[in-house]
Write a protein that binds this DNA or RNA. Structure first.
Length: 274
DNA sequence: AGTGCGACCCGAACGC
DNA sequence: TGCGTTCGGGTCGCAC
């Protein structure tokens, strides 16, 4: 389950490996994950090369000569760099072969990830990219900004933290961690969030994401980033996946509930309502 | 407009 | 070599 820290780790790793290599061949084995036309996708990529790799929220932005390749890993998308001769694995859906006979292979067990090719001039009006809110650590992410976004919301703060148009990059794991660190009950309505709590969200989301990035992300369940880099943030999780285990602050057993169908972990004592 | 929920996927975990 | 069911999780699209 890649989240922003995982995506950033993939970006940094791939940048060292695939820039400025000519694309020789493109195979699309599962076309539904491509929002672009398959033939057009192949035609544009062939003979092209990746000049840079950027990121906006959880979207990877591969820069080509006249296009950008947008890639969202969703839950289980991974990029692997392999030798072209290596056997193709079951869940490798897109294979980009460079002229030095190495492959960039997109692997996605659940086929949830998406890729789209757009012209460079279309980036600033691209809906997916343009609607992303501020990322943790960005200057625009202030307590006043959050209070403004939250003030009319009747829905739980947990749900709001997952809304990428408000804060870009938090997923389920980090939403749980940020709320625990901020001592906010995940069920609390957006409109009831105080200035002080909003400030905590600003500070804690920055702190947690920065730490997760330095540790290469969180490896949980099936996720490993490209080239075998393994996230070590899992050891840092304070509340996520700790149901019935003692709270690290007060020893109260951690509770698990569902908010919008997603597992939500919290300490009923440290994260009291109201 | 704000909100809730099913659909998309399939391997793992679970129940029997 | 057990088989059928449930779960998870980011995002979209649709219903209300």
């Amino acid at each position: 389950m890649p989240e922003i820290a995982e995506v950033e780790t993939v970006r940094r790793t791939l940048k060292k490996q695939i820039l400025n290599k000519e694309i020789k061949k493109v195979e699309v084995l599962y076309s539904k994950m491509l929002l672009s036309d398959v033939e057009e996708f192949k035609t544009i990529l062939k003979g092209n090369c990746f000049n840079d790799i950027d990121r906006r929220g959880k979207w990877l932005i591969f820069e080509l000569n006249e296009h950008y390749l947008l890639s969202h890993l969703r839950m289980e998308g991974k990029f692997f760099l392999k030798n072209s001769q290596e056997k193709k694995e079951k869940h490798e859906h897109i294979i980009i072969t460079f002229s030095d006979n190495t492959d960039l292979r997109y692997h996605d067990t659940r086929k949830f990830g998406r890729m789209e090719l757009i012209k460079k001039e279309e980036l600033k009006k691209n809906v997916q990219i343009q609607k992303q809110g501020f990322e943790p650590g960005e200057e625009g992410l202030t307590s006043n900004y959050l209070l403004e976004k939250f003030k009319k919301k009747q829905i739980p703060i947990k749900t709001l933290l997952l809304d990428q148009t408000i804060i870009s990059g938090l997923g389920n794991i980090y939403a749980n961690e940020v709320l625990f660190a901020s001592k906010i009950n995940p069920f609390k309505k957006g409109c009831e969030i105080t200035k002080n709590e909003a400030e905590n969200i600003v500070v804690m989301s920055k702190e947690i994401i920065e730490k997760a990035i330095t540790l290469g992300g969180t490896t949980i369940k099936s996720y490993t980033s490209s080239l075998g880099v393994t996230g070590r943030f899992q050891q840092e999780l304070k509340v996520h996946k700790r149901e019935d285990l003692p709270c690290l602050h007060c020893q109260t057993p951690i509770k698990r509930s569902k908010i919008n169908g997603r597992s939500t972990y919290y300490c009923p004592k440290c994260q009291k309502v109201g």
